[in-house]
Simulated assay, not measured.
Amino acid sequence: MNGDEQLLRGRVYGHDHDDPDPGPKPGRTYAELVGCPLDGLLLDIHDRRSGEVDDGVALATELCRWPGGRALYHPRPGELRKPGPGITCRLHHTGDTP
């Protein structure tokens, strides 16, 4: 599967599962979330500064250890970010917080 096919199959974090168009939008920049509980979702990072993404993100979810808590995702050291729109990096699950 090439990158474009993978991009089309992902669902963007924050979109409802019954949203008629839950996928990525052309020209936007995304991070792929890797590991439970949000594994496989895409996070729209288009309007975030690089430092915000490099420091990791805490994403609200009912699926983490604490319902209503946050799942923590961080880039792995040494994993490079590709420039441009589409999926440019991966963020890995590092834990949960209430």
Rank of each mutant, 00 (worst) to 15 (best):
P22G: 01
P75I: 00
G10Y: 06
R65G: 11
N2G: 13
L38P: 00
Y30T: 05
R49T: 09
D4S: 13
H93Q: 03
G27N: 07
L91F: 09
P77N: 13
D18R: 14
H93K: 03
D47E: 10
E79W: 15
Y30H: 09
L7K: 13
L72W: 07
D4A: 12
A58C: 07
P67G: 08
G69C: 08
T61L: 03
E5N: 11
H74S: 14
E62A: 14
D4E: 15
I45C: 08
P85C: 05
R65A: 15
G23H: 11
E52M: 08
T97P: 00
W66S: 11
P77D: 15
L72H: 06
R70N: 09
A60D: 07
E79M: 10
R9Y: 09
R76Y: 11
E62S: 13
R48A: 10
G10D: 02
L72K: 04
D16I: 00
G86N: 04
A58P: 01
P75S: 02
V12L: 03
G95K: 02
C89G: 10
E52N: 09
D96I: 03
G68F: 07
E79C: 10
P75N: 02
L42D: 00
G86Q: 04
Y30G: 06
A58N: 08
P22Y: 09
P75A: 04
T88S: 15
R70A: 09
G35R: 05
R65H: 13
I87E: 07
P26I: 08
L33G: 03
Y30A: 05
D4P: 00
D39M: 07
P20T: 02
E5A: 13
V53P: 11
K25V: 15
D19A: 04
L41K: 09
Q6Y: 13
G78F: 10
G69T: 00
Y13G: 01
N2T: 11
E79D: 15
D54P: 07
G86Y: 08
D19C: 06
L42S: 01
G78S: 02
L33D: 02
T29L: 01
N2P: 13
G3P: 12
K82S: 12
R48T: 00
G3L: 11
P85A: 05
P20K: 12
K25A: 12
G40S: 03
G84D: 03
G14I: 06
D16E: 12
G84W: 12
L59H: 02
D44R: 02
L38A: 02
D4L: 11
T61Y: 05
L7S: 12
C36F: 13
K82L: 10
R65Q: 14
D55M: 10
R28Y: 07
R9Q: 10
P83E: 08
G27L: 04
P22C: 01
G27Q: 07
L41Q: 12
G35C: 04
G78C: 04
E62W: 14
H17Q: 10
E52Y: 14
T29N: 07
A60P: 04
R11F: 01
P22T: 00
P98N: 14
G56D: 02
D18T: 09
R48W: 15
H17E: 08
D19N: 12
D47H: 13
A58I: 00
R11P: 00
L72N: 02
